[in-house]
Computed example of a mutant assay.
Amino acid sequence: MVGIPVLADRLTQIQASIIAKCLPDIVKKIDDKLNRSMSELNSMPQNLSTIADALKALIRIVKLVRESLEKLLIRGEFEEFPGDNSLHATARIAEMLYKYYAQLPETCPTLEKQFLMEEVCVLQESKEIRLPNFLPRSAFLTLLKNKVNTISHMPCEVVDTVWAYIEKIAIQMMLKHCENYPQLKSASQRVIHGLIDKMRDRSNKFVKDMIGMELVSDYTSSPDYMNSWVELMKEERQFMQAIEDHSKPTEISLKSFGKVEIGHLRSYVDVVEQAFDMRMRLTAYWKTIVLRLVDGVALHIKHAIKCLVEDELEDELINELVGPKMAGIERMLEESPATATKRDRLNKSVQLLRQSKDVVANIMDRIVADGDK
């Protein structure tokens, strides 16, 4: 008959064997949780203790923001955000410019209900005592100004749209890189907003100057203007014959205008030839105006973005975030309550898990030692 001590010893061995089988899983779970806690703790921002440390951290953040914006706004590299098309900035800005170009009238805009009446009315009001075969330049400039004014708001609208988008991207990158320093978020957003406002004002001044130059004079060195005008004027003879010969139909077909009604123009024989010439000049010159407004805005935006990212943003952020007497840097030394609480919780968790791991290791050692007896 087996005695009670023997049974107790046997039960202890069985219990130890069962526990020994469970302990590796327990150790694995402790290790996994310890690794997660350590990883989370290591990913937290460095606990800044000196102004030098804070300044280094700030400069690093600013450089990271600049690098991200260079990739997105200048080089068109999107590997950081492959699935977020809203951050593919060069493509989105190009789309804005294509849309702007598409909205500009391809042909010279007019509000007239009857063909050439806009030119006829201006020419009649430009009459003076002079030789009859001169096209009054004042009449041409009057019409040109009217037509340019109809689109003068478009360049301002596109630069406003572009800068609003750039501001959104810049703030998003700033918040991404300073997420570990929430005390910087408000000030950095304010800096970026102010800088973008300044860039937007510059762009608006630039495009207003562009429009102003188009209103001041008519000029181009491009041979395309003369080539286009000569080509358009080839139909002048057909047009004048239809005007002068009342037996001909009152509707004719012109390549650049399609079918047009000209019966009403037979009452203005004294100015209709000049009106036709003026319309052809405006039509040929309009292509030059549109090209300048599109290319000028596009090149300006490219240059302005380069200046923003490579020159102005870094200086503005450092100057404003450092602040007078290093006040901004001192704010970085003040860890937010949420971050401090999280750091303390993780440190305690790591300490407790390490202690637990040691306890389990001791138990396993004792079980092994008892089994060897």
Score class of each variant (00 low, 15 high):
240 M>W: 02
104 L>G: 09
144 L>N: 11
30 I>C: 00
45 P>L: 06
62 V>I: 01
351 Q>F: 10
299 L>F: 11
135 L>Y: 09
332 M>V: 00
312 E>A: 04
369 A>R: 04
287 K>E: 08
171 I>H: 03
274 Q>C: 11
320 E>M: 07
83 G>I: 08
8 A>T: 09
246 H>I: 07
327 A>F: 13
34 L>Y: 06
119 E>P: 05
354 R>I: 12
205 K>F: 12
1 M>D: 07
294 V>R: 14
189 Q>R: 13
152 S>Q: 00
242 A>L: 10
155 P>M: 07
333 L>K: 02
290 V>G: 05
55 L>M: 02
27 V>E: 07
226 M>R: 14
321 L>Y: 10
184 L>Y: 02
208 K>A: 01
189 Q>G: 07
221 S>Q: 04
266 R>Y: 13
194 G>M: 02
289 I>R: 05
247 S>E: 12
356 S>L: 08
153 H>Y: 02
292 R>N: 10
299 L>D: 13
373 K>A: 15
135 L>V: 10
303 H>P: 06
306 K>P: 13
257 F>M: 01
42 N>H: 15
31 D>V: 12
14 I>G: 07
112 E>A: 14
24 P>G: 03
160 D>G: 06
373 K>D: 15
312 E>N: 06
317 L>H: 01
43 S>C: 05
316 E>Q: 12
373 K>Y: 15
